[in-house]
Every structure is written in C-alpha cells, then in structure tokens.
Simulated assay, not measured.
Amino acid sequence: MNVLVVDDNESVADSLAFLLDCYGHHAVVAYDGETALALLRTGTFEITFLDENLPDIKGSVVARSLKETPIRSRAFLVSMTGDADSQGDFARLFDVCLQKPFSCEALMQVIEDARCSSDAVTLQAA
C-alpha cells in the first residue's frame, strides 16, 4: 500500500515510515499539514496517518479539508493523537483514531481495516 505519514516529530514520522516499509508498504513522510495537503491532492495514497498536533495546521483540519474539497484523496484517514479526550471529536473526520503510543499489532489492524475498506470501495465501483 502507498502510505502517507504526517507527524511534526521527525523521529516518530521516520520510524513509522521505516516500519511500514519493512512490512512491504511504500511510505512517504510529511512533517507539516501544508505539505500533507499538497501530497494528498497530487499523490495516490491508500492510507494516511495524521498527527493531530501539527505546527501549522491541525490534523483534523487537514482531514476536514480533504472531506470538503472535490479533489478528495481516497486515502483511509487515521488520526494519531496522544490526547484521549479528543478522539470522540475526530470520529466523523477519520476512519480510525489511534491513541499514541500504539502497538505494532494496532498498526497492523489499521492497515488490514484500510485494505478491507479499499476492497469494499472497489466492489461498489464494479
């Protein structure tokens, strides 16, 4: 799968991208919301991991922008946040909310959920 990882903490973003690459996915990294939006509008990503607390634009604002624009990326959107209280607010914008820190098992489950969601979209289009 083509994956976009968006986190202003470069170590976190690069580590997650490396792990995804090790599992056979192709991961691209962005460290801010503006770059993420540009990549999502031009790239083909099947799943996007978005940190909520980005320095320029919140991850939820990036997600909202994608939902409201006609050039919406078909990416399965995953919120990554350390703020457990905000997860309920994100439910309508994201397909999944991951609480940081998350386990490798949780990460693999999200990827499987994205794959199943992608399969369902493909079946509906046929």
Rank of each mutant, 00 (worst) to 15 (best):
D51C: 07
N53T: 10
S73H: 05
V61L: 11
A75S: 13
S73D: 02
I71Q: 14
A63R: 00
F94C: 04
A36W: 04
R64D: 05
T44E: 14
T48Y: 07
P70C: 11
A38D: 14
S65W: 07
V96G: 05
L93D: 07
P55T: 08
D32C: 13
A36S: 09
K67Y: 12
N53V: 09
F45T: 00
L37F: 07
T44K: 13
D89I: 06
N53P: 07
T42Y: 12
R92I: 13
D32S: 12
K67C: 08
E52R: 13
D95E: 11
V62G: 03
E68M: 12
L50I: 10
L93P: 06
E68Q: 13
D83F: 11
R72W: 04
V62H: 00
F102A: 07
K67Q: 13
V96L: 01
E46W: 06
S65R: 13
A106H: 06
T42R: 14
T81C: 03
K67M: 12
T35Y: 10
V78G: 01
S103W: 09
L37E: 04
S86H: 11
V96A: 03
S60P: 01
S60E: 03
R92H: 15
L39D: 05
M80R: 01
R41L: 10
G33K: 03
V78W: 00
D56I: 14
M80I: 07
F76Q: 00
C104L: 15
V96W: 00
F45E: 00
G59V: 02
I47Y: 04
F49I: 03
A63T: 00
S86A: 15
D95C: 08
G43H: 04
D83V: 12
S65I: 14
V78D: 00
T42D: 14
M80K: 02
F76V: 02
A36R: 03
V62K: 00
G43P: 02
K100V: 08
G33L: 05
S60V: 03
K58F: 04
G59C: 02
P55R: 12
L66A: 00
G43M: 06
D51P: 08
I57H: 10
L39T: 09
G33H: 07
Q87H: 12
A30I: 04
Q87R: 11
D51K: 05
S86P: 06
S79D: 05
D83L: 11
